[in-house]
Design a protein around this nucleic acid. Structure first.
Lengths: 147, 147
DNA sequence: TCATGTTGTAACTATAATGGTTACAACGAA
DNA sequence: TTCGTTGTAACCATTATAGTTACAACATGA
């Protein structure tokens, strides 16, 4: 199975807030850029808010970054939107037979490896800040604007 | 979401074939160790067979390793059971607005990172052979037998 | 004060993957 | 030819996702 698109949506939202900082960005407007429903945006925005990444104005509407892009890694976004539960990227079969030598011991051995693999994946996300991503994005935007 | 337990089941099956080599291991018997239904085992075994990792005797029954444990990495198992489609660990939202600067360019930028993260995860699996896993497993088995 | 537009959230839906289960034809060996 | 096994189809319950409608709570500006 796949990791929820909430992650890519979250990154998209933060990028919009960064690039269009100052503008009045409503869930409706963001949904237009992401290509989905405003409620989906509000749900993800709510998670980003709970994680302290954005601030949302109820009533008047609109969201803004709550922290500098430098201080937000992609792992922060990934965690904020609950993309994958901690240590549970892999689903292990649940009732290995404790009376079988292999069944009784494989869980422990395999679990270690799964955690290591998950850590490696998350490590890549943790090594990149939203600042870096937005900078690369800005270059891409310029390049595509020239064409 | 989580990566299918087919992966851990596949590793479990190969471990059984290695530890009990020579024995007549039917899907029924294996299912007893894994803690699931024989049909589930046959499904996974079928995938391992298709990948050339095991041989299965139709009719008389039983499965055996088709290759040396040294030549099978956990990544081979992961691929054999279709744990995650190539390059698709992350699900990216699918209709970013091409008329929006961010929407038009984020997919490309984010996709690169996702691939890098997935590669890191799979790299860990590729760096471990079934031989190594079974050796560690054997140590665990001994240790738990002593207690 | 009140009208307007927005957020937060509940509720419902369709879709898809998973893993368990029954059933049975095809097969191989004793 | 009998028996136990595999390979597969078919079905089911469960779960997560993502889209949608609906509406109360809220903030702001007229």
């Amino acid at each position: 199975m796949q990791i929820s698109s909430r992650f890519s949506i979250g990154v998209h939202i933060l990028s919009l807030l960064a690039v269009n900082s100052g503008a009045h960005l409503t869930s409706e407007w963001i949904a237009g850029s992401v290509g989905t429903n405003p409620v989906v945006i509000r749900r993800v925005t709510g998670q980003l808010k709970k994680a302290g990444l954005v601030e949302v104005r109820a009533g008047s509407g609109g969201a803004t970054l709550a922290r500098g892009l430098e201080s937000i890694t992609l792992l922060d976004v990934y965690r904020a939107v609950d993309a994958v539960e901690e240590g549970k990227l892999f689903h292990m079969h649940e009732q290995p037979n404790p009376n079988c030598e292999v069944g009784a011991n494989i869980e422990h051995v395999l679990r270690l490896l799964m955690l290591k693999a998950q850590d490696a994946m998350e490590g890549v996300l943790g090594a990149v800040t939203m600042r870096e991503l937005v900078d690369v994005l800005a270059v891409e935007i310029k390049r595509s604007a020239v064409k």
